[in-house]
Design a protein around this nucleic acid. Structure first.
Lengths: 338, 338
DNA sequence: GATTGGCACTCGTAGAGCGAGAGTGCTGGG
DNA sequence: CCCAGCACTCTCGCTCTACGAGTGCCAATC
């Protein structure tokens, strides 16, 4: 009994099931794939595959469907990413390069993945960790309220409200703004504390507390932990008939709304710029037990700054999804401001 | 035959159906509501209501369910917004006041509406139309690429990429930045063109084109047409059993992803700070034919700057939804930076 | 020893038939 | 104008049956 043929059978089962969404029996298997053996032989192989846990039958005398373990083997050893066509690549490049700002880039990347894969896309905003400060702006906004806007080297903009005890007059604010910008401009975000304490030393005593408060807000805003914004696109794809989620949809949608938890999961499974795949119950989240996640990092020159994923049913088209995710991550890395 | 009682019957039908999600017959109607008449009488009234198009029966010999027209009458004349409880109000206030920036305010408002109504929430970002320019920042980001960041009076931040022909050196960029800020600061966004042409006159000839380009990007970024960002929250609520969307879910989710179209619909139906309700087929969008939209404007002192809506099945709890939308809009208006 | 054809067996599915229950519309009397 | 009673209709859930798909096993074959 050839080991190789068993793997061929498994691959055939996965491909057929992904395509038809129906349990596949020994007869159609021999008809649709040139295995060169009879249904009876295939049946023997299938029995062995079932014993090994790669496939299962939903009920006696139905065909077989792959298990999570079966998909795992398929992804690891039986498939290769199917490269996108040239027109597709050009379309990706064109669509991403038309973006007008960072929000738009991220949004477009999400829609792109959603459309290419027919599934849900999750895109994380690029991290701020390694950037420097470009400009700090203080905007008074109503009584006792200040808006602090931070612009970084790499074009990221963060804003935070700050409650202040006493109203600060325009002139004092202007001076503060000038001093802070002079002291902090160009510095790494990690050295920000230092810059703020320098300013605190030279400023009028009644403003020291304010400077400290601003400093706290700024480092807070740039803290990596806060850096957890996700964009989700293509949720409508999940509801389409034939996705296999027809009634188990709400746990999945709930998981997608729990952005903090979701990001944790993605971060955990994605180590570098390779594409990682997590299948069915391999996902730590219960809501994703019937789904698979294909995820990769992106960022300028090998420096992974954020994540990009596609989520779909376990019976997704893995080669196609992996290729799409990889391609978009690559273009995203290129088009992204340094 | 009393007209008043017929309306009572209609109200009873709507309330019962909203509650039980099942067609309601004449018997249970007399049992659950003190109508003071027998089922037979109610049947006559129901026949009249059906002739008038306010209710319908899914099939012969099932109970009645309200039609879109029936809900319309209910909303317009038979119900009043049910005020929220004090604890609820306090919870809203607390939750919104904890927000750290504008994104967070909008996000929280969405989650709040979603949770209060058990439906989907759609929140539009506040418009920039009436604000002035606070600061303009130019950040070079990679070769031939400039990031233009606009900070407005009311704390809104917009950013746009700009492709430039030749690389601009730091010094020239610094000068440009200073000049532009001097000329434009404090001006209304509508007078921005003027400020830019002033600068173009005094700047070195080789930078005129750049100034013009920046001017275009800025007014573009602040153009109201561009101002169409929506946040959608609580999509998972739609998938919950008993929402009535069990199989017709995907057109709805698709409608929610078509943000431009969706915003058009909301803008059209919402005229001012009153709460507007659009029921079932009254919605121009086919995807929303089985849903109702409850929408209102919000903004500082009666100046409507953006929209806030809740979308659910036509058999939603209108009084509760209207109250929730109104309450959140009110607090949002108060907490929002001027 | 692997492969294969044949055959009995198991189940899920689709369809038909049936009874019960809910709800209506109508009619005739208060 | 209201209401009790009654005949009628329709859906829903149940059971039963026939069918088909697919398997597992065994003995024959290469």
């Amino acid at each position: 009994m050839s080991d190789q043929r068993r793997l061929d059978v498994l691959r055939a089962i996965v491909e057929d099931y992904v395509h038809t969404q129906e349990p596949v029996g020994s007869r159609v298997l021999t008809e649709r794939h040139r295995l060169g053996v009879s249904p009876a032989t295939v049946r023997n192989d299938m029995a062995a595959l079932e014993d090994a846990g790669y496939i299962a039958q939903p009920h006696t005398s139905a065909g077989r469907i792959p298990t999570d373990k079966g998909y795992r083997l398929f992804v690891d050893r039986l498939s290769e990413a199917r490269p996108l066509s040239q027109p597709q690549k050009r379309a990706i490049e064109k669509f991403l390069s038309e973006a007008v700002d960072l929000d738009d880039v991220i949004g477009r990347a999400g829609r792109l993945i959603a459309q290419l894969t027919g599934q849900v896309a999750v895109v994380q905003y690029p991290s701020l960790r390694r950037s420097g400060l470009r400009h700090l702006e203080l905007v008074p906004t109503g009584e006792n309220r200040l808006l602090v806007v931070v612009i970084t080297d790499n074009g990221r903009v963060e804003q935070r409200f700050l409650e202040v005890a006493d109203e600060v007059d325009e002139a004092a604010l202007g001076e503060l703004r000038a001093r802070l910008n002079a002291a902090a401009a160009g510095r790494r975000l990690t050295q920000m504390d230092l810059a703020f304490s320098e300013v605190a030393d030279v400023v009028a005593p009644e403003h020291r507390a304010l400077v400290a408060a601003i400093g706290e807000v700024v480092s807070n805003a740039l803290d990596e932990e806060q850096e957890e914004r996700l964009v989700v696109a293509g949720q409508a794809n999940l509801a389409r008939a034939g996705m296999g989620f027809d009634q188990g949809l709400s746990p999945l949608l709930e998981a997608l709304e729990e952005q903090v938890v979701l990001l944790g999961l993605l971060t955990e499974m994605t180590s570098d710029e390779n594409v990682a795949v997590s299948i069915g119950h391999e996902n730590r989240l219960a809501g994703l037990a019937r789904a698979s996640v294909v995820s990769t990092g992106y960022g300028t020159d090998g420096d992974t700054v954020a994540l990009l994923s596609s989520i779909g049913p376990t019976r997704m088209d893995y080669p196609g999804t992996i290729a799409a995710v990889r391609a978009v991550a690559r273009y995203l890395s290129r088009v992204l401001p340094t």
